[in-house]
Amino acid sequence: MEHEPRRVSAFFRRGRPVQIDVDGEPVQAFEGETIAGALLASGRRILRHTPKGSARGVFCGMGACFDCIVEVDGDPGVRSCITPVHQGMKVRTPKPFQRGK
């Protein structure tokens, strides 16, 4: 995981380090970052898989497209691009599912 190349060190001072759990794996983040931001910074572009199985990541980055939705602490459909991380946050990325029977 290459963290620094994605995080700008010039111009910005990070807040406190924060650790979140994404699909059972620990991910290092910093206070103030969004879930999507932290994942991108850790080199991870895929945020979920659609029902049909296509990978999706950040698209609009402003909470309009709902491509970035993940489950946070048991709550589904959370827009990771506008939701700040907090220590111990449990994130689950949506998986494909069979619509209908």
Binding site: V8, G37, R56, V58, C60
Partner: peptide, 25 residues
């Protein structure tokens, strides 16, 4: 256009200005 890694310039700007994070390498 739906592949992870394709995003709007607005998304890139939000990441940079809001969090000091670059969208990619």
């Amino acid at each position: 256009w739906t592949l992870p890694g394709v995003m709007t310039a607005g998304a890139a700007q939000a990441l940079l200005k809001g969090q000091g994070i670059l969208p990619g390498r």
